[in-house]
Nucleic acid binder design. Structure first.
Lengths: 143, 143
DNA sequence: TATTGTTATACTCTATAACTATA
DNA sequence: TATAGTTATAGAGTATAACAATA
């Protein structure tokens, strides 16, 4: 039982999908005057403050690259650096009020647009798709 | 009938998936001493030569950004610029021999790693996943 | 000594605006 | 005038290597 769509390999489909999502993300970020990297950083901070080392790992960035990224969003008043009292080498990066607003708005817009793209699918298919992705993601995904 | 994985929204799953693919792409590019942008460009050229304007559209880049990108890979001998005889303003960007090698190798490695990630899924589920993605992609995706 | 984060440096990527050459 | 591409400029993103401060 071979369908017409089966001609495209899964990996190929995933790569194209990733590019699509990437562009959505870039477009939305731009509307909020953020670079995609800044938007990604802000979104990562929504659950709560995070240290530089962990941020570096979860964003796949060298510490030195991260320093600059944080500098720029801090300069715009979107995050704060707070020195840790227990370990005075470390610091926590936290969203400010306006940083949180931007992060949430960006996230919602991205989500809305992607949902729109997936709108062609029935509710049942959307659930199936989610399950399949999670099934092949959660085994490896760090975050 | 609600499954455990259903708690994660589809859009959320897609965003995470995109980041995952993005990192695979970045890692592989790096092994070949390419930036992700350069690798993406080379892969786009595999089917055949393309003009600047079309490249600009399909990579979502301003023409001026593309000029620099092409400059750098041309300097490395991976692509050539050929002036078009019919319209002497335009030019075609084509892969050289070594450019083709790199493009194909990168593409294969990326594909292999992603297939590996999806290896948890049964063959049938992989087909289902592919169909679902294509179903929600092809309606909008330009390329 | 090891870890946390920053600084210095050198490229790459990107957009905007102004430009050249051709159509 | 409109289109194809480049140049000039400025800022952002990134990695490597060397460093400072703390553990």
């Amino acid at each position: 039982m071979v369908t017409a769509t089966e001609q495209l390999r899964l990996s190929e489909a995933l790569v194209r999908l990733a590019h699509l999502v990437q562009h959505v993300f870039a477009d939305v970020s731009r509307e909020y005057n953020l670079t995609p990297q800044q938007a990604q950083l802000l979104c990562r901070l929504v659950p709560g403050p995070v240290g530089m080392s962990e941020l570096s790992r979860s964003l796949h960035l060298e510490k030195s690259s991260l320093t600059g990224l944080i500098d720029r969003v801090e300069r715009r008043g979107l995050v704060t650096r707070t020195r840790n009292d227990r370990d005075r080498r470390a610091c926590q990066i936290a969203l400010t009020g306006s940083g949180t607003e931007l992060a949430v708005a960006t996230h919602q817009d991205v989500t809305a647009r992607i949902d729109e793209l997936a709108g062609e699918l029935s509710r049942a298919d959307q659930q199936r798709l989610t399950s399949l992705i999670v099934g092949s993601l959660l085994c490896t995904a760090d975050r």
